[in-house]
Amino acid sequence: MNNLAMHRRMLGDSLVTSCLQTRRHLQRYLDGEADPALAERITRHLDACRACGLQAHIYQQIKTAVCRHATEPPAEALERLTAFAEALPRQRT
């Protein structure tokens, strides 16, 4: 009996979502786009299921690596644009 089956027995099926469901919604979950009930079920599943947990971990690492590409836009450009936006309403258009 695997971890998930044991987990299911402990918690009852209704509280635990399947591997299939978890993988279907994993990206949404990692991106913070899952609704709270789904997120809760997936969190439980990831804690209980080693295979899905590992997969989630890899995807999280990928997200973090992609995130390192982030470059802040130049501060001067941001200042110029803010000044432009603030001045716009005063223009008589």
């Binding site: 936006a85 001045a87 309403p89 005063r90 223009q91």
Partner: peptide, 30 residues
């Protein structure tokens, strides 16, 4: 960019509201 030191528009209420709305909606997203 329009000159930032131009005077506020005379037709007060409406345009001031519009300006405030623009500021609150748009500025945080730049």
């Amino acid at each position: 960019a329009p000159s930032p030191d131009s005077e506020p528009t005379p037709d007060a209420a409406g345009s001031t509201d519009r300006q405030a709305r623009y500021d609150s909606v748009v500025l945080p997203q730049i």
